[in-house]
Design a protein around this nucleic acid. Structure first.
Lengths: 196, 196
DNA sequence: ATTAATAGATCGAATGTTCGCTCGATTTTA
DNA sequence: TAAAATCGAGCGAACATTCGATCTATTAAT
């Protein structure tokens, strides 16, 4: 038994730092969060933070890369599991809604934050692997005739725009019910917009 | 001839400050913009800035209030000018697209910025007068049967989500053509989602 | 018409504070 | 006993804001 966990004690400082940063970044925003805030929330020293990360930006970058990668895995899994656009897009809506409910900080960081403001060298979210994969899925649907003939950019905006707006409202606490309460209505609207 | 303009000289410093701040805030974000940056761009002194505004936040607040008010006026004008949901929503899409093309800084500030991060006492955008008016317009359409029976929140997300996503892509320079090139496709998708 | 007085506008150097980050010391691990 | 991890006081730079000085426009007085 090395350092993994005895009862519920020693955690990896690196993970604690990432967890604390994610929480604070989504709660107050990157620029309203100081390294001292992260230090306090993660219950480590300043030195430890800089032992694991080059600087504050590197913490945000690590979070961003982790989340993008895991989102990409999920989308790939969906693409393999399903066989047509209807199932695929529906599964993506369900995935995003579920993530919003039980990993709200992750979704807040991805959907709400303006990464380019604090990660200047990062491409826009719409150019990241999972979002390119989404575009690919939709283009395939259009080619095969499952989706209406329309500009792929508009199809994308229609799908992800509606989806992310629902998520944003939920995270702003502007909805009366949890997201899955709106799942049917949301999916119906999206599918009506996209189907032939 | 007081101080209005002789050739194209003396401008109101207050307006110059607001114009410079709007440009920089949308270009680099609120937190990446220093008062010194605004000072330079507006070609005034630090003292002048603080003569007209209590602090940096007050500049952002003035911009926000101005834009919200003018957007509200435009939406009210549309509501008066048109007589049904189809015309109203279509006119709003056209308005937003046009504003994005020839007042991109204004739209960037409204659609992309996270006001709550630098205006902590401000309500979310979705609670501002013009957005409440939009909600009202959509609820009326649902009641009258012009729009499909659905949760108003979803109808809203569908409309504004798609719209704002197209605008965001345009402002990120991710579109090959100007927005009005996508107007028909966008409107068709929105209307298919919302009509009975 | 000229001057005097006043208030508003403009200026930019100086101030105080926040914050990211460094570094030498100390402890823990292997 | 060497290397890795952890600590936190302290450094330096950036930044928002202040303030007293200077300039300008307006009004009042002679």
């Amino acid at each position: 038994m090395a350092q993994s966990k005895k009862k519920a004690e020693k955690k990896e400082p690196k993970d604690e730092i990432l967890k604390a940063a994610l929480k604070l970044f989504t709660q107050k925003g990157y620029f309203n969060t100081s390294v001292a805030d992260i230090r306090r929330e993660a219950d480590v020293s300043t030195g430890t933070i800089y032992h694991y990360f080059k600087n504050k930006e590197a913490i945000a970058d690590a979070l961003y890369q982790d989340i993008i990668a895991s989102l990409n895995d999920s989308l790939k899994e969906i693409k393999n599991r399903t066989k047509n656009s209807f199932e695929r897009l529906r599964a993506i809506v369900e995935l995003f809604f579920a993530l919003t409910e039980d990993a709200s900080e992750v979704m807040g960081f991805i959907v709400l934050a303006h990464h380019q403001e604090f990660l200047p060298s990062e491409k826009p979210l719409s150019m990241s692997p999972p979002f390119l994969l989404l575009t690919e899925i939709m283009q395939e649907g259009i080619r095969s005739g499952e989706l209406r003939r329309m500009d792929p950019v508009v199809a994308n905006a229609c799908f992800y725009g509606t989806l992310s707006r629902m998520i944003q409202l939920r995270l702003e606490d502007a909805l009366e019910k949890p997201l899955d309460w709106y799942l049917l209505d949301t999916w119906t609207a999206i599918w009506k917009a996209l189907s032939p």
